[in-house]
Design a protein around this nucleic acid. Structure first.
Ligand code: NAD
Ligand code: NAD
Lengths: 207, 207
DNA sequence: GTATATTAGTGAATAAATTCACAGATATAC
DNA sequence: GTATATCTGTGAATTTATTCACTAATATAC
């Protein structure tokens, strides 16, 4: 079966929230509370779960641990994913050192940059390499995800290199939209568009 | 009239792309090319423009400059927006120094942090202050947008402070979901959820 | 033990978003 | 100057997503 982007997006947020609940030692959660936590409605969430065949308990809700495992199994969020970061500027290095990725199931295996200077001076526990080494390292270290933090002009080129090297998914933080084959999952996350969205939304609200 | 989030999101991306086209000196653009550039279909875009009453020219498409201005006027993306960043860690400082925000119409007026130590050591052209000064500064400098880059645990508290100080929109990069009154426009941008989305999407694809 | 309140599950209804299909306009080719 | 290909604009059709409305189950209160 196939699921809509909306459903998958909700499921991923729910997964994150379940992680929090689990840490807090909370055992059951209702569709209503889940809805509130991720910004959706209880109906949508029950519908999602219904479609996915995730069952809850009358008057108690959904069992946190079990639900988290079911989601993890179904969407393969239980297993660690191996990622790399290309472009070790301000944003790239911030991401490189973000330890929480690790506990969230994403392991940053390597960083790459075109500037040898940068590679040599960078202070981090993660291995960093010249971009020329990318194909080799992505293959040998089985890296599945590429995170692009190079300037917009270089984004497409980097995407091509990543895909050729064998990554299966790309998260692109540059403002450029990248073109990738259908088989590669990718997401463009442009902060400026996000800010504009807020500005535009706000203005529309006032009318 | 009111527009859907989807429409506004597309419009913001189109606005960004029009900026690029303008710089390149391209005068006309078709719905098809726009669609391709932002990852939508030509139908949707023509429908959006139809609803918004943005007219194009047969066999030529839409006039780049004029369209950009119309969008800018309608959604108030032409005027500079004043923003601040709260939480000057790795992500916050990366954003603080991102000059491109300026040319994209967002001016980072100030940065805030709870750690006086950090405030004192930080190297940047932007003014940085202790969080206690936020209400005062947001008001006196007319700051409209708050960007949250504090740890998840502090996000809600910071959101409350920002709102009380008078910001009208919030972009939250922490993994916590924040609760804000209806009148405040806000967006939660959690990188981990984005990575999970890719991982989940990818796995679904394979099935 | 019974009544009550809460919560899931789901087909049906509704609403929203997208796509289609085609008429109308016009730049371009020849 | 005419034919042709291309591109917009928009109601209608379709598809997708959400919400409703109600049944069933059961924990909790008393
Ligand atoms: N810094 C921010 O807060 C911020 C905000 C919004 C968007 N962005 C976007 O994120 C991206 C990175 O931003 P930044 O501020 O970190 O930029 P930066 O200039 O600090 O870093 C970019 C890095 O990419 C490297 N690079 C350039 N071309 C490369 C290539 N072909 N292969 C490998 N590495 C290459 C550079 O050497 C540099 O280290 C940009 O696209 C930017 O528009 C950044
Ligand atoms: N670094 C990344 O690449 C990255 C990636 C994904 C998500 N995030 C999220 O972005 C946020 C910032 O991440 P980071 O890596 O920059 O963290 P960081 O720990 O480097 O910085 C956080 C900053 O917030 C400040 N702070 C804490 N409480 C505050 C308060 N109440 N008021 C004002 N300032 C306060 C701290 O002093 C610190 O300077 C976090 O929520 C994190 O989960 C970061």
């Amino acid at each position: 079966m196939d699921f809509s982007n909306n459903t998958i997006d909700r499921i991923c947020r729910i997964f994150g929230y379940l992680t929090v609940l689990e840490k807090k030692g909370i055992d059951f959660i209702s569709s209503k509370e889940l809805a509130e936590a991720i910004g959706a409605t209880e109906y949508t969430i029950r519908k999602d779960f219904s479609t996915l065949n995730f069952k809850g308990y009358t008057r108690r809700g959904y069992a946190v641990k079990s639900l988290k495992n079911k989601i993890g199994d179904k969407f393969l969020l239980n297993q660690k994913r191996r990622a790399c970061i290309v472009g070790l500027g301000r944003l790239g290095t911030a991401l490189l050192d973000y330890e929480k990725f690790q506990e969230d199931g994403f392991e940053i295996i390597a960083g790459f940059d075109i500037s040898i200077n940068k590679i040599e001076r960078i202070q981090t526990d993660i291995d960093v390499f010249a971009i020329s080494r990318l194909p080799d390292i992505v293959k040998s270290k089985n890296i599945e995800l590429g995170i692009i933090t190079v300037p917009g002009e270089a984004a497409q080129k980097v995407a091509d290199i990543l895909i050729k090297a064998g990554v299966k998914g790309i998260l692109n933080f540059s403002p450029a939209k990248i073109n990738v084959p259908q088989s590669i999952v990718h997401l463009d996350k442009d902060f400026t568009s996000a800010l504009r969205f807020i500005a535009a939304r706000f203005m529309v609200e006032r009318k």
